[in-house]
Amino acid sequence: MIRPLLVGVAAVALTLSACQRNETETAESPGQTEPVNKAQDAMSAAVGTVSAATLGQTVEGYVTNAAISDMYEIEAGKLAQEKGQSPAVKEFGGMIVKDHTASSTEMKPLVTAAGQTPPTEMDERRKGMIDNLRAASGADFDRTFITQQISAHEEALNLHSGFAQDGGDAGLKAFATKTAPVIQKHLEHVRGMQGAAEAAPAGAAAPAK
């Protein structure tokens, strides 16, 4: 029953992504409206939850999802450094660029040894998330970034933890085992950022951690 659910959820997510791109867009605001972008991100999180639990069960699925996850995190981190309003968001952006660039580099020879070919670009789901970050501005950027990062790291943690336990390639399995704690650290960090932002007075920037 899981795979039909994945297909159905993915179809809705891609429909939202297509709708977003068909709206009038500008270079400064490539996304649609904030409510639609939030709905798209929420649907993306649902797709990611199922994807990590199913597609990541195979070596090919793990390689594809782990590589795309790194690409998304690196791009999102760069945008956070550029557009983030709070020091915490900018700092976290730098952290994930550094850590996910390192994990992507470390994974490449293991992927080759496993006889796999990694993707060279993000899927439509992650492209849509990046578009939503580009469209967000001011405090909305920080909120969108933090929300995306929580769901993205929950997905990545499920992916790496699952493959670390049941993966079919020894080298990639060891990599997943090593990577999962890093993802867990990121997740705990960004959850703390969300808590600090919710506790801060209206209009105040979240403190750096």
Rank of each mutant, 00 (worst) to 15 (best):
G77C: 10
L6F: 06
L133F: 08
R3F: 08
F145E: 01
R191D: 05
G195C: 08
S151E: 14
S29V: 15
V89P: 02
E23N: 10
V111K: 00
T49L: 08
G56P: 02
Q184E: 14
V36K: 09
A80I: 02
K83C: 07
T177M: 08
A67I: 08
A88Y: 02
S51M: 12
M43G: 00
Q81L: 11
P118R: 10
V9N: 00
I96T: 09
E34A: 15
D166V: 14
T117M: 08
A205M: 12
S137C: 05
E121N: 10
V36E: 14
N37S: 15
K173G: 05
A67H: 07
L110V: 10
V190N: 02
T101S: 15
S137N: 12
I183F: 04
T117H: 13
L187Q: 01
H153Y: 13
Y72M: 12
V12Q: 05
R143Y: 01
I68R: 11
L14R: 07
V111Q: 03
K98S: 15
A204Y: 07
S44F: 03
Q184F: 05
L110Q: 11
A42I: 06
T112Y: 07
L5M: 14
E91K: 14
V63T: 09
P207F: 14
Q32I: 12
E60M: 08
G138P: 05
K98L: 05
A88Q: 12
K178P: 03
Q32S: 14
P109D: 12
G56S: 04
L55C: 04
I146P: 00
A170S: 14
K178H: 13
G31F: 03
E154M: 06
N158I: 05
Q85V: 10
G203Q: 14
E154I: 07
A76F: 02
K127N: 13
F92I: 05
V111I: 15
Q40Y: 12
D70K: 02
Q40W: 04
I2E: 11
E188N: 15
Q85I: 07
T112G: 09
K83A: 09
G203P: 05
A139T: 12
S44N: 11
A152W: 01
G195V: 07
